[in-house]
Structure formats: C-alpha cells, structure tokens
Simulated scan of single mutants.
Amino acid sequence: MNGKTLDEVPESIRMYYLCKATKFSALPWAGGLYDQDPQLIDEWGYIIQVEAETEKRKAEADKRRASSGSRSRRR
C-alpha cells in the first residue's frame, strides 16, 4: 500500500479489497447492490476501471515481450 498503514487507506479501497477477497459474497451493508452507499459504489467503479486499465497494459506488455522474443529466436 505504498508505505501507508491500513488506517491511512480510504475506507472505500479497504472495503473493495475485503469484498473482492470474498469474491463479493458479502457486501459492506446488508442487502443487495442497490442497498449500498452510492458514493461507495461510484468509488468502486473507479477502482474497477483502474484495475482493468492496468491489466490491459500488462497484457499488452506481455504480448510485446512474447512477440519480440519469438522474433529474436527466428534470426
């Protein structure tokens, strides 16, 4: 967590990763998705976007590495 203690991490991030660890089988508040705090859901949406962009960049870098490795073996 970049040197931050758990107390310094925003609650929405802590809650997201706790829920993600349980594969979202439990949400912070009783009920379904629409029973959750709208701001929390908005913040989770942002986290999900950032994770997706990071994964996409990682996959592209892996593909480039694999491609450049196969080119060097052909020479």
Rank of each mutant, 00 (worst) to 15 (best):
6 L>R: 12
33 L>P: 00
32 G>V: 00
45 G>I: 04
54 T>V: 02
17 Y>Q: 04
74 R>P: 01
24 F>G: 03
47 I>L: 13
6 L>T: 12
51 E>G: 09
33 L>A: 03
32 G>Y: 00
57 R>C: 08
17 Y>F: 13
56 K>Q: 06
53 E>T: 11
71 R>D: 15
73 R>M: 05
70 S>Y: 13
66 A>H: 06
19 C>D: 11
57 R>G: 07
63 K>S: 06
52 A>N: 12
31 G>W: 00
9 V>E: 05
2 N>A: 10
15 M>Q: 15
13 I>H: 10
50 V>T: 02
16 Y>R: 04
34 Y>K: 12
59 A>E: 15
65 R>C: 15
73 R>W: 02
23 K>L: 05
64 R>Y: 12
75 R>I: 01
2 N>L: 11
61 A>Y: 03
47 I>C: 09
31 G>K: 01
71 R>P: 07
54 T>L: 04
29 W>K: 12
53 E>L: 14
8 E>I: 11
61 A>F: 01
68 S>C: 11
55 E>I: 00
7 D>V: 12
60 E>D: 10
46 Y>W: 11
32 G>L: 01
32 G>Q: 01
2 N>R: 11
47 I>S: 05
33 L>I: 07
28 P>L: 04
10 P>R: 14
14 R>V: 12
32 G>S: 07
2 N>V: 10
52 A>K: 11
45 G>S: 08
64 R>C: 09
13 I>G: 04
61 A>M: 04
63 K>W: 07
18 L>G: 06
31 G>F: 00
26 A>W: 07
66 A>S: 08
28 P>E: 06
56 K>I: 05
23 K>I: 01
63 K>G: 02
29 W>R: 12
58 K>Q: 13
19 C>N: 13
54 T>D: 06
69 G>V: 02
45 G>K: 03
71 R>N: 13
15 M>G: 00
27 L>K: 03
28 P>V: 07
41 I>E: 00
72 S>W: 02
70 S>A: 13
16 Y>S: 02
69 G>F: 07
29 W>Q: 13
6 L>W: 11
3 G>I: 07
59 A>R: 15
46 Y>C: 10
10 P>T: 11
69 G>I: 02
40 L>R: 07
41 I>W: 00
42 D>E: 10
39 Q>A: 04
74 R>M: 10
75 R>P: 00
62 D>F: 13
33 L>G: 03
4 K>D: 04
61 A>V: 00
36 Q>K: 06
2 N>D: 09
64 R>N: 11
23 K>R: 09
38 P>A: 09
17 Y>V: 02
42 D>R: 11
75 R>A: 02
45 G>C: 03
24 F>A: 02
3 G>W: 06
21 A>D: 14
1 M>Y: 05
17 Y>P: 02
17 Y>S: 02
58 K>S: 14
57 R>E: 11
5 T>C: 15
26 A>H: 08
31 G>R: 01
50 V>N: 01
54 T>P: 00
14 R>F: 04
59 A>P: 08
66 A>R: 08
20 K>T: 10
46 Y>F: 08
28 P>I: 05
51 E>L: 15
75 R>M: 00
55 E>D: 05
68 S>Y: 14
23 K>Y: 05
74 R>D: 09
61 A>R: 03
25 S>P: 03
55 E>T: 02
22 T>R: 14
5 T>Q: 15
54 T>W: 02
27 L>P: 09
43 E>M: 05
55 E>F: 02
60 E>N: 05
52 A>Q: 13
16 Y>I: 03
26 A>R: 09
61 A>K: 04
